[in-house]
């Protein structure tokens, strides 16, 4: 069965927001822009998920709703018999505010963008907290897991109906601040996100 939940968001991490906005030192004007943007984000997000059996055959990961070829995902889920597939979103109100800022004040749009990134990552973390022994989350587009796999995830989870998340023709998700991901159960690894899986070497947000 697919579960749908509304999850309350914990307090924001201002330093993370500034990092996403490309700022190392913030002045008063910037901090008040961050506050203004934060005030316009809902304090909850929506998640839909399912707990499913998983099997690994070499580089192939087999779920009950479909299978996918990915060495990195197979490695991450190795040793797990069950996985959680989830999708979450901040909702389309966020995009409406962003569209408006894009028009009236593009500097706020940049800050809003950063706020959204921090909020959706926090939402993922908050959701995952209720599972005790788990791997780190893995999304289509990480390593060699194809973005195409989004199609199967969103269709299996019935994302449009459950949380209003839809996939566009070029695999862009709407609303923009949304995540789809998979994590394994019954095995522990560092569940904090890190950059070692990613091949975007020149990414300005890369953490060493």
């Amino acid at each position: 069965m697919i579960y749908t939940e509304k999850i309350k968001l914990p307090a924001p991490d201002i330093n993370e927001i500034l990092r996403y906005a490309g700022v190392r030192e913030a002045d008063g004007g910037l901090l008040s822009a961050v506050d203004e943007c934060l005030a316009q984000v809902l304090d909850y997000g929506k998640v839909c998920y399912a707990q499913v059996p998983v099997a690994i055959e070499e580089n192939k990961v087999i779920f009950n709703f479909g299978e996918v070829e990915s060495k990195a995902l197979a490695h991450s889920l190795m040793g797990c018999n069950e996985a959680v597939i989830f999708a979450c979103t901040l909702g389309m109100e966020f995009d409406a505010v962003l569209r408006r800022y894009s028009l009236t004040d593009v500097s706020k749009a940049v800050v809003m963008q950063a706020v959204g990134t921090e909020r959706i990552e926090t939402l993922c973390d908050a959701f995952m907290e209720k599972f005790s022994t788990k791997t780190r989350r893995f999304s289509p587009g990480y390593g060699d897991l194809s973005l195409e796999f989004q199609k199967e995830i969103t269709s299996f989870l019935d994302c449009y109906k459950k949380i209003g998340l839809s996939l566009g023709g070029s695999l862009i998700m709407s609303p923009s601040k949304s995540v789809t991901a998979i994590f394994g159960l019954g095995k522990e690894d560092c569940s904090k996100r890190d950059c070692c899986l990613c091949e975007m070497w020149e990414c300005p947000y890369r953490k060493e």
């Binding site: 906005a21 490309g22 700022v23 004007g29 910037l30 822009a33 593009v106 500097s107 940049v110």
Partner: peptide, 10 residues
């Protein structure tokens, strides 16, 4: 930084 550059631009 970028947001500040853009505040000036606005």
């Amino acid at each position: 930084y970028l947001p500040q550059l853009l505040m000036s631009a606005e």
